[in-house]
């Protein structure tokens, strides 16, 4: 957890792919994040858990600059996220995000939803993007739904389209913000299977989640946040069995 004080000119895979150093965030006078630091190595799966209102979603939104930080450093590869001259396009090509409410574009079909950003943002060739988009939809088990509109798909299907849409930008890091919280129990599984496959392929994943079993099975490292700070963290094996902090234990006893 040694924090380099200067920004590395070039990023190498042995360095953390995402690095947070003493990140603070306030909304008005309310301090949501009170100094959060952690590193994520390439290919790692990180789960962030904690009670509602503990700043989990804000934390994950800071990483792709949807929410500007008040102070502290966030680095994704060699991009300084808190830099006022941040190149948002460069950052968001590297960092994909999936939301709780899917947020698909309702006026576009599943295929068009996946294709839009690579075609219009990156200016890639439409035919090449379409091939990739079809492959991605197949990968998330939605072959045959290419021409369906979001309104015609179930919650779980919409969420998988959203994952494919994000992957179409070929990100290096994926952020998942409570992506199963709005789903009914049967469809939670199909989305988790997709994320697990991604993780197994070596995608760096940061998840805010309430799925404890998933966290235990898939995560490399679990962070427990409460009232804006990381209270406890560790690999699942020790985290779930040997939590030392009383707040963590109380939370775990409620959710497990």
């Amino acid at each position: 957890m040694a924090a380099p004080t200067t920004s590395p000119a070039a990023w190498t895979p042995d360095q953390p792919i995402v690095q947070l150093i003493d990140v603070h965030k306030s909304f008005g006078s309310f301090e949501v994040l009170k100094g959060v630091s952690f590193d994520v190595k390439k290919g790692e799966v990180i789960c962030i858990i904690g009670p509602s209102g503990s700043g989990k979603s804000t934390l994950i939104r800071c990483i792709n600059a949807l929410v500007p930080v008040s102070s502290g450093t966030i680095r994704v590869e060699n991009i300084e996220v808190a830099d006022p001259k941040l190149d948002k396009l460069a950052l968001r090509r590297k960092v994909g995000m999936v939301f709780q409410q899917y947020n698909l574009f309702p006026h576009k079909t599943a295929l068009q939803n996946v294709m839009m950003a690579p075609v219009h943002v990156l200016g890639q060739d439409k035919r090449e993007v379409e091939q990739r988009a079809r492959a991605l939809l197949q990968k998330v088990r939605l072959a045959g739904k290419e021409n369906s509109y979001p309104g015609e798909l179930s919650g779980g299907q919409q969420q998988r389209v959203a994952i494919a849409r994000s992957l179409a930008m070929r990100p290096d890091v994926m952020l998942f913000d409570e992506v199963t919280a709005a789903l009914d129990p049967e469809t939670v599984k199909e989305v988790l299977v997709t994320i697990r496959e991604l993780a197994e392929e070596g995608m760096t994943c940061l998840l805010v989640t309430h799925e404890m079993n998933f966290a235990r099975d898939v995560a490399d490292h679990i962070y427990f946040t409460d009232r804006g700070v990381i209270v406890e963290h560790g690999p699942p094996a020790t985290f779930f069995t040997a939590a030392s902090d009383p707040r963590t234990r109380e939370f775990l006893s409620q959710v497990l």
Partner: peptide, 25 residues
């Protein structure tokens, strides 16, 4: 506003978001 957020996270510019995503809806 979540539509703006989603488009924003896909690196669309504000102008693209307005003309390609918001206004058509």
């Amino acid at each position: 506003s979540t539509q703006w957020e989603a488009a924003d996270s896909l690196a669309f510019t504000p102008r693209q978001i307005m003309w390609r995503i918001i206004l058509p809806q």
